[in-house]
Structures are given as structure tokens and as C-alpha cells.
Write a protein that binds this DNA or RNA. Structure first.
Lengths: 240, 240
DNA sequence: GATCGATGCGTATGAGATACGCTAATTAAG
DNA sequence: CTTAATTAGCGTATCTCATACGCATCGATC
């Protein structure tokens, strides 16, 4: 179904030169406006509510006009995703890799919290666009500067990124439905899941400081692991 | 759209008693058969190919017959997800928490590798069913037995689970399209993403042992972080 | 002002989910 | 053995969507 996502996401990177004015009706619509409208709908009401009709209504145009600017809906969603990833202020420089990756993770989190519909898309198979590549490149630079090899740097980025993507899941759910444990009300659940039962009985779920910041708690664990790796990794020249 | 997912996923936990034989036409179809057929289609061709018609054809029945056993498609997908999570051999006992969580993570990975369509669903907002609750409870038990408080145990599980879910993403993608870095062929990409460029130039991506097992590498980092936490955490009674 | 090339978009098509209501198959009651 | 009760199977009709096709329109260029 997805034809040339690569061309779709990257073709505009080079500004087309040498065409000052072309013949033909000037376009009131644009790919950017369509993507923006679709994203606004998704942000407000979920990806489920994004339909070509709904977008057209929002832009006050005919449905089929959209197809002059976007190949199809799948491609539009891919564009929405990458545009969303690009929609964040650039990160500053950091002296310390750990501060840098902490900031990186928090920035990514902010992004996904603002656009909850994007997280499942991140998990689905997709082509990387410029918006997403920015984050990868930035994080790669952080680890490369600590002296890690390129492949290990990538593995480190994948680890942090993996944690962030996964840990966001319950967080985004929590915003809509704080009752992750509603199922424990079921009479059969208590005996089948004694540890969950114990957790609920302990009472302190709601106001546990660790759980309140479980994202940063887990992030800290990952960074701790990386710190240990970086400190103890075999170095080419041995100890100075 | 999702009505009573809670009842849907949990109602069958208690076997209904006291009804030996009921009147009415006996059912050839069953919820289980429908879920199994739908899962088989999704495993083979992706969730996109699962339609009520396709399922009905596979089961050699009419489309509307399915609705006698499943409230609707969204609910069917929820059932598929939870049934998939329940479709794994139970984990053995482990003496060491680290061995246990390593096995846990690898088991979850095996599950998602067998059913790639399930991972985006895990990321989407959903109600926990008995299949998923099993994994949560098991992991919670592991940490609780190390003496961690219930809330911290949950945070630890969320951290490992987060890592696993997130790290699986590129892995599942890699199976279908090993060219995660195809975008770097773009002329504009090299200068905009120098660190990715350097990574590619380093050449050793394909046969880097770290990247080959990047899942376990990252998992090790998370467990290292947890180990350090467990060893240095403040204990109620002080040092023995 | 005629032509060209792109945009805007109405209409038609086909897929997919599902509400409704009828039919069929059993069991239980008379 | 009827007959009523109850539940499964499912054809048809509808509604929502994505999208192919082709015509109309608009400006720039010649």
C-alpha cells in the first residue's frame, strides 16, 4: 500500500530551483496546510477521526482537491508523523552526555505527549523522515563525542529511545484512563494475580513519588546502565 | 467506540456455572475460533488484511454470524491482542531476579516477534486483559521478592517493559526492511545528519556484534541500572 | 486572446462495518 | 408429539470512507 514513502518524505529536502513562476492555476491548498489540519484533528480527537472528508471540511475545500497535494491517506499519515517529529525547538548543547540524553528523552516525551496518536505510529513499520532523523543524529552525536564507537553509539541510542517509546505508553494511557488497575476489581483477578493484588493493597500507588515520576525513574536506570558501560568499557589505549 | 472492553476481556474468567444444557441452536462458531482465525490472518498478512469478510470466508460462515460471538471489530482486535499475550508457555522459577527479568524480557520479545501486528496495539490505549496481566504479575513478583516496595517494583517493571516494547520496534522493522538508513542516500541527508553519515561511513553496521544483539545490549543496560539501584537503595533497617 | 498546464472538485465505484429481522435448530414444557 | 422458548446463522440494506476519472477553471505565457 505504501508506495514510495522514501520519495514522499525526502523529496522536498532540496528546494527545487530554476522555476520562478510556472504556468497553471496557483494553488490555494498546500501539502503543509493539509498536514497541519489533519494533525490538528488528530491532536484534538485522535487519529481515528481524521478522514479526508473531515480535513476537506476543515480547509473548506472539496475532498478530491486534497489528492492534488497528497498521494493518499497512508502517505498523509506518514507526513503527519514526520512533520510532528520536526515540530520541536532544537536542543541546546550540553557538556555532559548524561544531561544531554536526559534532555533528549524529555524533549521526545514532550513531543509524544502533545501528539498521543503518534506513538503507535512510531511503533509501526515506517520509513524514517527528516523530522525523525534529526533526533537520531543529535543523540548519535552525543555518544560519539564520549568516544564510543559508532555502532555502540547507535545501540545506546536505540536503548534510550526504546525505553522512552515504551515507557510513554502507560503514561499516555494514564492521561485518559487513570484506572490501569480497574481489572483487579474482578473477583477472579485477585487470586490469579496475587502480586498485583498486593500492589493495590499497599495503597500507596496514587501518591508514590517513584510512580509519579516513573518515567524519569526508569530513564535514570537506563542512563545509570550506560554510565557504567561507558566507565568500564575496554578502551583502545588502556588506562592513561 | 470501545464500549465495555473490561467486561469483554474479563467476563469469561469465572466459568459460568449451573447451566448444563441451554435451549437454542448449538453454536458451531465460537469466540475462540473467530479470534484464532483473525490472529492467523494477522500473523500471515498483517492486521490490515483482517476484515470481517475475510474471517468469515476463512471460517466458511456468513459475515454477520461473527457478530453473534464478538461485539464488533474493535473488540475483536482487543481479544486478539489479549489472547496473543496469553499464548506463551509459563516461565519457570528463577533464583536470581536478574535471570528472571532477562527471561521475562526475552519471552515477551518472542511473543511480539511471532505477532508483529501486536506491538502497535500494545502502544495504543487499551484495557489490560488476563493475558497481559499475567506478565505484569509475574514481573511484579520478581521485584517484590527482592524486597523492593510495591510501588518501586511497579516502576521497575514499567522500566523493563518500556525498554522491551520500545526496543522491539526497530527489530521488527528490520525483519521486513533492513534498510533503516536508506534515507541517507539522499544528497541533502549527508550534510544535515553528519553523525548518521559518520555511522554509515564507519562501515561496521552490518556485522557489529553489539548491534546484532542490540536488544540484549540495551536490556543489559536497564538491568545494570536496576542492579545498582537495588544494591544502593536505602533500606529500612540499615546495614545488617 | 489563444494555448497550456496545473489546480479544484463533483460523481461514481468499491470496500468495509454493522443494524435489522427473518430462518433454522435445539431443548423444555405440556 | 406438539408447541413455545431460546439462541445461532446469515441475507439485505445502509452508512462511512478512500479514491479513480474526467471535466471545469484559472493564470501565465506566447
Amino acid at each position: 500500500m505504501a508506495g514510495d514513502m522514501y520519495g514522499l518524505l525526502w523529496e522536498r529536502e532540496l528546494p527545487v530551483e530554476g522555476r520562478g513562476r510556472r504556468p497553471g492555476r496557483p494553488s490555494g491548498l498546500s501539502r503543509e496546510r493539509i498536514v497541519a489540519e489533519a494533525t490538528a484533528i488528530a491532536d484534538a480527537e485522535g487519529l481515528h477521526q481524521v478522514s479526508m472528508k473531515r480535513i476537506a471540511d476543515g480547509l473548506d475545500c472539496g475532498v478530491m482537491s486534497l489528492y492534488r497535494h497528497v498521494p493518499g491517506k497512508d502517505e498523509l499519515v506518514a507526513l503527519m508523523y514526520d512533520a510532528t517529529m520536526a515540530d520541536a525547538p532544537p536542543l541546546p548543547e550540553f557538556a555532559d552526555w548524561r544531561d544531554a540524553m536526559h534532555a533528549w528523552a524529555m524533549a521526545v516525551r514532550t513531543l509524544f505527549r502533545a501528539h498521543p496518536w503518534a506513538l503507535p505510529l512510531a511503533t509501526a513499520n515506517h520509513m524514517m523522515g527528516p523530522g525523525e532523523a534529526y533526533w537520531l543524529d543529535w543523540a548519535l552525536g552525543v555518544f560519539t563525542r564520549t568516544g564510543l564507537d559508532a555502532d555502540v553509539s547507535l545501540a545506546a541510542v536505540l536503548a534510550v529511545n526504546g525505553y522512552v517509546g515504551g515507557a510513554l505508553r502507560p503514561e499516555l494511557q494514564g492521561q485518559d484512563d487513570p484506572q490501569w488497575f480497574r481489572f483487579m476489581r474482578h473477583p477472579a483477578a485477585a487470586e490469579r494475580f496475587p502480586n498485583v493484588q498486593r500492589l493495590i493493597d499497599s495503597g500507596g500507588i496514587a501518591d508514590s513519588p517513584v510512580l509519579k515520576d516513573s518515567f524519569e525513574f526508569g530513564l535514570g536506570l537506563v542512563l545509570d546502565g550506560l554510565e557504567r558501560y561507558i566507565e568500564t568499557r575496554p578502551r583502545p589505549g588502556g588506562e592513561p
